Simulated assay, not measured.
Amino acid sequence: MTSKNVANKTLPVICGVDINTDEEGRFNLNALHKASGMGESKEPNKWLRNKQTQELISELSANLSVAQEAIKTVKGGISPGTFAHEILAVEYAGWVSASFRLQVNQTFLDFKAGKLQIAFDPMAALNDAEFLRGTLLSYSEKVIALEHKVEEMQPDVEALERIAKADGSMCITNAAKHLQVQPKFLFKMMSENHWIYRRAGGKTWLAYQDRIQSGVLEHKVTTVERSDGSEKVVEQVLVTAKGLAKLSKMLGVSGVAA
């Protein structure tokens, strides 16, 4: 169930029909009939002819102030129809059907309690000069704020672009210095994100093949001489410029050391 705000006046909505009220807060029975989807046999004028309805109107009128009317019919004008006190409107809904009475009664209760969600009417909004001014002002403020944000981010974007386009690669320890983090932290992060791994029982870090293929890591194989004069092959993971830029974004580093 929803309500609609029309000309600064909130109206309950039942089955997509606005249940408008008059200045005294009486509900339009014709609108309720339309919302019910019933035929001519359930029109308000049929209900008003009932003896029980007339007795109810008389009893209710006796308990209202002199200035109040339990029911009023408006012919012609902007909002024609039969407008009735809330009690009569609910009774009319019950005459239409028991299920419709429950729906109307609950909607009225939610309406008075302010629990109904306001339905946005785009056509009404387009005809509301104040709404359009407010919307355009809000939109302009957001555009200005975004422009400032872009200006603030531009140096960082340019820095990342320079890193990504730079030639050469570096070891993870040196990459950590550029990213302004501890090497131990960077090794752990790259391992947890499946950039690097160690073979079972091994101490050397290796790059995952998909990271090499994507161009963010490289393998460097060098030969070093042992103290006894023998040689051994050593593998080392290198971070490319592209990889450094990607790691920088992952870390959320706003400034990268040169």
Rank of each mutant, 00 (worst) to 15 (best):
residue 147 E to S: 07
residue 147 E to T: 11
residue 148 H to K: 11
residue 148 H to I: 11
residue 148 H to A: 13
residue 148 H to L: 10
residue 149 K to S: 11
residue 149 K to R: 14
residue 149 K to L: 12
residue 149 K to P: 00
residue 149 K to T: 14
residue 150 V to F: 07
residue 150 V to D: 05
residue 150 V to W: 06
residue 150 V to I: 15
residue 151 E to V: 11
residue 151 E to N: 11
residue 152 E to P: 00
residue 152 E to W: 05
residue 153 M to E: 15
residue 155 P to I: 05
residue 155 P to Q: 03
residue 156 D to P: 00
residue 157 V to I: 15
residue 158 E to A: 13
residue 158 E to C: 03
residue 158 E to P: 01
residue 158 E to G: 01
residue 159 A to K: 11
residue 159 A to Y: 08
residue 159 A to I: 04
residue 160 L to Q: 02
residue 160 L to V: 03
residue 161 E to N: 12
residue 161 E to P: 05
residue 162 R to Y: 04
residue 162 R to A: 12
residue 163 I to E: 03
residue 164 A to C: 07
residue 164 A to Q: 09
residue 164 A to K: 08
residue 164 A to P: 08
residue 166 A to D: 02
residue 166 A to Q: 06
residue 166 A to E: 05
residue 167 D to S: 13
residue 167 D to T: 09
residue 167 D to R: 14
residue 168 G to Q: 02
residue 168 G to A: 02
residue 168 G to I: 05
residue 169 S to D: 09
residue 170 M to N: 07
residue 170 M to L: 14
residue 170 M to A: 10
residue 172 I to R: 05
residue 172 I to T: 15
residue 172 I to Y: 05
residue 172 I to S: 03
residue 172 I to A: 07
residue 172 I to V: 15
residue 173 T to D: 03
residue 173 T to A: 02
residue 173 T to I: 10
residue 174 N to D: 11
residue 174 N to Q: 13
residue 174 N to G: 00
residue 174 N to W: 08
residue 175 A to P: 07
residue 176 A to G: 02
residue 176 A to E: 01
residue 177 K to W: 07
residue 177 K to D: 12
residue 177 K to N: 14
residue 177 K to I: 08
residue 178 H to M: 14
residue 178 H to C: 13
residue 178 H to Y: 14
residue 179 L to C: 01
residue 180 Q to G: 12
residue 181 V to A: 09
residue 182 Q to E: 13
residue 182 Q to F: 12
residue 183 P to N: 08
residue 183 P to V: 08
residue 183 P to E: 04
residue 184 K to D: 08
residue 184 K to P: 01
residue 184 K to F: 04
residue 184 K to G: 06
residue 185 F to K: 12
residue 185 F to Q: 10
residue 185 F to D: 01
residue 187 F to Y: 04
residue 187 F to A: 00
residue 187 F to C: 01
residue 187 F to N: 00
residue 188 K to Q: 13
